[in-house]
Design a binder for these strands. Structure first.
Lengths: 232, 232
DNA sequence: GTTTTACACCTTGTATGCAACATTGCTCCT
DNA sequence: AGGAGCAATGTTGCATACAAGGTGTAAAAC
């Protein structure tokens, strides 16, 4: 039986995009995964046209790419691209906190709530929810600071980061990440934006450090490494 | 007679996007301007399908928006959206410079070259080229620093800023802007990234200060203001 | 047995056709 | 004359049809 809820793809043209982004943030779609137009059109109960339009938007957001007449694929950033992405994130998030004036109590409360949800997901062992919330914290932060433009940019960058983490088998501990989120909020609560920015910088450096740039589970990279390794 | 060069829209699917972005940066398309699918399809000699796909990407990049069954329009950011956009830019560009290690002589040279081109365009009175180069400086900076991700984000943000400047009748002087660009390069050359970041912060605050949030040349806002003004 | 080649299948690329709806000018009624 | 309703027109929304090309398989040649 088909999922009835999906039929609403007509009314909300962004549903397909949102679902894919959410699935990526939750770790339910992997980098390199193929997303066929026909396949998606059946899942969402619409024609290829709408799927294609959604893919175009996702392409512009740097989440998927197309290989001519082969299909759409979730991005598999190279090591260099991964660095650039995380660097961009660090620039954006550090800049965001540095240029911040003051965080209101309401903001602090909302962020604390989010971290509580993270802890709950970690405790309950819900990997998808955990992955989603840990990534979404940063989007939430930008939203809370009241800037939807930043939030939107961050959503794309964090989605890419999650994919990068999956591709390079991040060893980053969820507990640690969650703790660092808490620390950032502490600094914000004390009104010390500079300290918050510093902690964010450290946090994102941890994210990058936890990557294993050797692992590259991408088919191509994997193959290349295998051939280089066996040949000599 | 039709422009033959446009026929290449087949070979480069991003041509339509690029042209519209370039036109916006050059001040040749105004905020609120209507971009009809049919109209564009004739200009580029392709079917509406390709035009539509390009518009989808531009929509995801925040350059155009669609009004159901009325058409595509270049964005007309509200005062709030304008602030958010410029704030996001400031966060990004300040963060970018703060987290920068060192600028190589080659980078400095390329940037100086760009500023020289700006001066030339200003001197020759080529308004479109001037507008384009002044905006593109920031993209160029990110590219020069070697981060295409940042460059891409910045292209979209500066395009939006240029549209905002047009909408709110920016009084920012081209000479001044160009001078500030030079100052930033000076700081980079001295290896003082912090100072460069500070100057960038000031520069972008100038950009915002130069806006006249009262003017709002949007049709709707304009009309509303006109009616309020004459009625009392 | 191995290599080459031809072919069938599957996927995206692009155009076109029709439906749904917003706008606008006209007509008819008051 | 003024206003309400209606029809004509133009635009996007969405689906479908067909074209172009990539991939893998199987047959055939060596």
């Amino acid at each position: 039986m088909r999922d009835v809820a999906e039929k609403d793809a007509h009314k909300n043209p962004h549903l397909i995009e949102d679902r894919i982004i959410h699935a990526a943030l939750s770790g339910r779609v992997a980098p390199g995964e193929r997303l066929g137009e026909k396949e998606l059109s059946e899942i969402f109960g619409v024609s290829r046209t709408l799927v294609r339009e959604a893919m175009m938007r996702l392409q512009a957001r740097g989440i998927v790419e197309v290989s001519a007449r082969r299909g759409w694929f979730v991005i598999e950033p190279s090591v260099e691209e991964a660095r650039h992405t995380i660097d961009a994130r660090r620039a954006l998030e550090v800049g965001m906190l540095v240029t911040l004036e003051r965080a209101s109590p309401a903001m602090i409360r909302a962020l604390r709530e989010h971290v509580r949800a993270e802890q709950k997901a970690i405790a309950s062992g819900d990997r998808a929810e955990r992955s989603y919330l840990l990534g979404h914290f940063h989007v939430c932060l930008a939203e809370t600071l009241g800037n939807p433009v930043l939030a939107s940019l961050l959503q794309d960058l964090t989605t890419r980061t999650v994919l990068i983490a999956a591709l390079y088998q991040s060893s980053h501990d969820a507990h640690e990440s969650c703790g660092e989120h808490g620390g950032i909020i502490d600094a914000l609560e004390k009104g010390d934006a500079t300290e918050a920015a510093r902690l964010m910088d450290v946090h994102l450096r941890h994210v990058e450090k936890a990557l294993n740039y050797r692992s590259a589970s991408s088919r191509l990279e994997h193959l290349k490494a295998a051939l280089q390794g066996s040949g000599t």
